[in-house]
C-alpha cells in the first residue's frame, strides 16, 4: 500500500519526533515548573528566549543551529573533538531542530497547568512527611498530567510538521533527514511528482488526526481519574 520511499519517510518522521519530544520532555517539565513557581531576576528574559523559536522564522533557527552545531560551530567543534560526532546533516540533528522548534509549545502547556495546581495539596503532602522532591513526583506531577500530555502532543505534532529549521540545519538527505514534510517538498519540486506529493499529504493528515485522537482519549481518561 505504501511505497518503500513513503515508509522510510514516515518511520524517520516518527523516530525524529519521538526522540525530539522524549529528550526535551524533562527539560520542558523543569522550565515549566521554574516559570510557574518562581520569581527570579531575568525571568522575563528566559521566558522570551524560550518563546523565541515560536516567533522567529524557522530558517533563522535552522541557521543558528548550523552556526552553533556545525563542524566549525562552537558546540559542534566540541562534540566533534570529544565524540567525533556533529549534529549537522544527521537525523539526530533533525531531532534537535524539531525539539528546539517545539519546545515553546511544550513548556507553555505544562506551565499553564502547573500554575493551576492547588498549592494547598502540596502543603498537605509536606505535613504528611513528604520531602519537596517527593511532593513533586507524587502530587504535582500526577496533577499536571493532563497539561504534560497536552504539551507532549503539541510538541509531537509540531515536530512532525517541522520543515524550515530542519532543511536549513541538516539539509534534505534521503533516509537520513528526509522526513515527511521534506519528502513532500521534494516531490513538489520534481515535474510529475504531484501524485506522490498528494499521497504524502494524505499520510500527513492521517498521522496528525491519529495523534489528536490519541491525545483526546488519553486526556479524557486522566480527567476521569481525577474527577473520580
Amino acid at each position: 500500500m505504501l511505497s518503500d520511499y513513503e515508509v522510510a519517510a514516515l518511520v524517520l518522521s516518527l523516530k525524529v519526533s519521538s526522540i525530539a519530544v522524549g529528550v526535551s520532555l524533562p527539560f520542558g517539565v523543569f522550565f515549566a515548573w521554574l516559570l510557574a513557581r518562581f520569581h527570579f531576576p531575568g525571568k522575563t528574559v528566559l521566558d522570551g528566549l524560550l518563546h523565541l523559536p515560536l516567533v522567529l522564522p524557522p530558517v533563522v533557527v535552522g541557521y543558528g543551529l548550523l552556526v552553533a552545531f556545525g563542524r566549525r560551530g562552537v558546540i559542534g567543534k566540541l562534540t566533534n573533538d570529544l565524540f567525533g560526532f556533529t549534529f549537522a546533516f544527521t537525523w539526530q540533528g533533525a531531532a534537535l531542530a524539531a525539539a528546539v522548534m517545539s519546545f515553546p509549545l511544550m513548556v507553555r502547556a505544562m506551565r499553564l497547568s502547573m500554575e493551576q495546581v492547588d498549592r494547598g495539596l502540596e502543603q498537605a503532602a509536606r505535613t504528611l512527611g513528604a520531602s519537596p522532591l517527593r511532593v513533586f513526583f507524587t502530587i504535582t506531577l500526577p496533577l499536571v498530567a493532563p497539561g504534560v500530555l497536552t504539551g507532549v502532543i503539541l510538541a509531537f505534532a509540531r515536530s512532525l510538521s517541522e520543515f524550515g529549521a530542519t532543511i536549513t540545519f541538516v539539509s534534505n538527505i534521503p533516509g537520513e533527514t528526509r522526513t515527511l514534510p521534506l519528502a513532500l517538498y521534494t516531490f513538489t519540486q520534481i515535474p510529475g511528482g504531484a501524485d506522490q506529493a498528494f499521497r504524502l499529504c494524505v499520510i500527513s493528515v492521517i498521522l496528525a488526526m491519529l495523534a489528536l485522537l490519541a491525545s483526546e482519549v488519553m486526556a479524557r481518561r486522566i480527567q476521569k481519574r481525577l474527577a473520580g
Binding site: 492547588d118 494547598g120 495539596l121 498537605a124 503532602a125 502530587i139 496533577l143 498530567a145 481519574r225
Partner: peptide, 14 residues
C-alpha cells in the same frame, strides 16, 4: 511529626 487537618480537607484527587 505533626498531622494537619485543613479546613478544606485537601485530599489528593488523583
Amino acid at each position: 511529626r505533626i498531622g494537619y487537618v485543613f479546613q478544606d480537607g485537601r485530599l489528593f484527587p488523583h
